[in-house]
Design a protein around this nucleic acid. Structure first.
Lengths: 266, 266
DNA sequence: CATGCTTGTCCGATATACTGTACACCTTGC
DNA sequence: GCAAGGTGTACAGTATATCGGACAAGCATG
């Protein structure tokens, strides 16, 4: 399932270049929504058509249908469209189906409010890491966390925790080779990554400095489910120069809060 | 657009009974998601097929495609499916596209935390009223507010505020006749409803007792946009026997908080 | 004014998505 | 054991959704 989802994306980009084949409406819809998510901004129909490699006439047809259904919404005077209210309701239903979700969000709120730091709720989506929700720092150090943007798992502290339920072999099969290359070009040796995961498993938390970028220090703590897996993590995104004393205090707070959220009823 | 959306629903129910015509994949998807939203619980594919009046084979096909795309998710051991993580991300993108949204949610949080009452964020969806988000009361009086469930506008205090930008004629054309009938069978005269709207417009708030059910007293206050419209409301859902003194205090708090949220930049 | 590049709509042809039906499998009840 | 009712998959035919292309209207630019 995950592999297939990944294939869709590559297929999408391929289509954008070739632009040849006839496709189902459903596939177009899925590709369109994913494209809109990655763009994170309203787009005009023409641009959407080009981006997803679909004929203009088809794109208009589909966009209009989605507008009717409130899954898309026109925004601004000209022809820009973005996600619509129906999406909010579907997403709300998804989140709150898990009865623990309000408690988790509350924990996120409190962590952010009490510390003033950027706090995030993280998970996997396919073989990528995503931020599900976040509270931005009140301070001047403002990393605009991109909710919903897929990031290679090895780039993140949370990623190490989210893989703790997997064997080394499973991790090797799961994480694409190119994801070990950091944005600055450095490559994380696979063995080191596996060791990081083992360490995170033993410690019950994970920590990373200057991984995805040079200026951030990340602290992550696991939210465990009934079977001992780690479907979610809470994490802080700190300026890399945060004093060690404060880091330790924040880490303790984070771990305590995350530990109190065991999803025993999933 | 709204009318069309409404037609879809009736068409859906018609299809469930007749079950005759061939339909597009996109339409099936939309109907399926709406059905899942109304059901508010994971369903098995067979049940979905029956509910939306689609052939079983088609339903399997569509559900499997949506599972691949993470728009649906299997839940539990047997074949139940519900909304997937992609929906959360799409919905998050929708909500947070409006830069004011975090402030609005914060206001909702604070209202609920400070008062311990059930607080809701409400809006229109088509010609129906929906709750977009809510914080349940901490007290024993617990009305499980149904986020995303469509409710006839005349049943709600917020509904009156949400129509304040419309002329009487527009309201008459907008609200279906059957929506004036309350759950207990009483019918609100249209003139009375129009007078309520006018009152809400003058007062800058709306109040209703024993409308949708006999046990609730609702207070609603408008969140205005740049053009003076009311795209959103904040409201309290109180036990009907809440003392007047407390109601007045809550109303003042609600109005103040809502007034502070003007969406000047939309 | 012409030119070039948009946007949004319309329409006929055809590739194909959707449907109906059939199948194998499992569980439940008697 | 057999029937009844469920799930999940497979396949061929046809109704039709998708596509390409044409169109008018708009808006720049020179």
């Amino acid at each position: 399932m995950r592999e297939t989802a990944h294939l869709n994306e590559t297929r999408q980009e391929a289509a954008a270049s070739t632009g040849g084949e006839r496709k189902r409406g459903i596939d177009r819809v899925i590709i369109l929504l994913e494209a809109l998510l990655r763009q994170r901004a309203p787009m005009r129909v023409g641009d959407i058509a080009r981006l997803i490699g679909a004929p203009r006439s088809t794109t208009y047809e589909i966009v209009n249908r989605l507008l009717e259904a409130d899954m898309l919404e026109t925004v601004g005077g000209d022809g820009h469209v973005y996600f619509g209210r129906a999406m909010h309701l579907f997403g709300w239903a998804y989140s709150h189906h898990n009865a623990h979700y309000p408690r988790i969000v509350e924990a996120l709120d409190r962590l952010a409010a009490e510390t003033g730091e950027t706090a995030q709720l993280c998970a996997l989506r396919g073989n990528k890491y995503v931020v599900l929700d976040c509270r931005d720092s009140t301070g001047p150090f403002r990393i605009s966390s991109q909710v919903g943007v897929e990031v290679p798992i090895p780039w993140t502290a949370s990623g190490r925790l989210l893989l703790t339920h997997m064997s080394d072999a499973a991790v090797r099969a799961f994480v694409p080779a190119e994801d070990y290359r950091l944005p600055d070009g450095r490559v994380i040796p696979q063995d080191e990554f596996l060791a990081d995961i083992a360490l995170a498993r033993r410690q019950g938390y994970s920590e990373s400095a200057g991984l995805a970028d040079r200026f951030t220090w990340c602290l992550a703590a696991p939210i465990r489910d009934a079977r001992g897996g780690v479907p979610l993590t809470l994490c802080f995104v700190l300026p890399v120069d945060t004093p060690q004393e404060r880091r330790l205090a924040l880490l303790a707070q984070l771990r305590e809060r995350a530990a109190s959220l065991d999803l025993t009823g999933e």
